[in-house]
Design a protein around this nucleic acid. Structure first.
Lengths: 250, 250
DNA sequence: GTTATAATCAATCAAAAACGTTCAAACTCA
DNA sequence: TGAGTTTGAACGTTTTTGATTGATTATAAC
């Protein structure tokens, strides 16, 4: 591996994980500890990262820049509020399905010390769930890089070995007539199955999704409880004829 | 190969891989090191690429480049050499099981363009497999943070929906009498199942594992072919009475 | 708290790899 | 043939690398 390649590898991993360990880099690149140390020293002098004992972390500068450009942080405060409200619906000892997605990701910090078992099809959730000490099962299946989610028949098959007390789904569109929708049919299928295996289904959304229609239908409004940050009152009445709606600001 | 031919070959490869090594170009074009150096110097003066120590990279985007590990036979750690030797046993279109671990991780760069389907229980492998454009299935199951592997009954259950042409396992100990061993019984179970579902089983190890005995037994030597960097000849004879051994340095 | 143990660190050094330069041989094209 | 170009090998130099050392820091045990 060329020096540049290692540097790129390190930065790329750092961007994805927020933190890297020297020993991991040694194993992954095949370079020696000394070389990785030199790499980190060099990259730190370029302000690309900040060294810490045992590895390196993103510079604050990079952190801010990333959070501005990253779509996952758009509407972040709303998402976190919705996530917190959703997490409060979980009881001690529940078995929980967490859909792959940024909103469900935000729920994780609120799940601590609840003695939960969490199942997810989202790759990005695994590390964080684990950091919070939560027993975590991944569905497995075919990996879809675009959304970092596992989908397909194997995923569905694996899920059928579980039963959930509660399941939390993200959606891209919610519409009085057309119900819940999402761009990817395969992910829609996973969401459907999760819901069918769960005693209670909750859909997480923010107000930007109201009366949007995305491509693939997940289910009708009747089949899940909606958790959303806010909603105009005239529309809210229509929704409440069909399903239970929990507003965060109440 | 003519000068122009070499130049376009270099640029084409660079386009595809984002980085090229001089030694690789020497091997691939049959030209001498001096000639390749002259080519790179020339192309750099035309702003077509940027030279770095050991090779060249694309000039354009400052984007984080994909890591490229290639088969230059010099200066590779033992793990990578073992990994490469292992990867060469895979045929076009094979279905492959890759055990969680650092040695199997090193196989990934050598799996490109083989039209494979890869199944793994290693979380860390998923991202990299995906970067190399390889169709990837994860077994799923209970996540074990210490080794970033999925283990347990769900993992085993999910695996039983697959059949493999070849499976590659890492081990911590190999011993003439005691066979293959590893510290974690649950991972040992996963390795056993993978092997039972595969037409051919290969164990990857380096010489530091010889005649070590770790805790959990995986299988006897008879049940897998061993791929290892080197082995003292008197021991080698003992091993060869029981199983096929592929030495990297031969 | 204190101590013992393990992990990580920076600094150093010798070996390996990659470098540019030079020069003679081989090739090209008139 | 002969001038101009391209090539590969040889050389000493520079850069990169991995192993080792003892100091420093974290972790565990007490």
């Amino acid at each position: 591996m060329l020096t540049n390649e290692r540097h790129s590898y390190i930065l790329k991993k750092l961007e994805k994980k927020q933190a890297v360990k020297i020993q991991d880099l040694v194993d992954e690149t095949g370079a020696s500890e000394s070389t990785i140390r030199r790499d980190l020293t060099e990259l730190e002098s370029q302000q690309k990262l900040e060294r810490v004992f045992g590895g390196a972390i993103l510079t604050r500068h990079n952190l801010i820049e990333q959070s501005v450009t990253d779509k996952s942080t758009q509407n972040l405060s709303e998402k976190i509020q919705v996530a917190q409200a959703a997490a409060e619906l979980i009881k001690e000892g529940d078995s929980v399905f967490l859909d792959a997605g940024t909103t469900t990701f935000q729920m994780i910090p609120f799940l601590q010390n609840k003695n939960l078992v969490v199942v997810t099809n989202g790759l990005t959730l695994v590390d964080t769930l684990n950091e919070y000490g939560i027993t975590t099962y991944l569905t497995g299946g075919l990996f879809k890089s675009k959304t970092s989610a596992f989908v397909g028949s194997q995923t569905v098959l694996a899920m059928k070995n579980y039963r959930f007390d509660v399941c939390f789904l993200g959606v891209n569109g919610l519409h009085v007539e057309n119900g819940y929708t999402t761009p990817d049919p395969e992910e829609a299928a996973v969401k459907q199955v999760a819901s069918s295996l769960s005693r209670n289904t909750f859909v997480l959304a923010d107000h930007s999704k109201i009366n949007q229609i995305s491509f693939a239908k997940i289910m009708d409004l009747e089949n899940a409880m909606l958790i959303i940050d806010s909603m105009p009152s005239e529309i809210l009445d229509d929704f409440r004829k069909k399903t239970s709606v929990k507003l965060v600001h109440e």
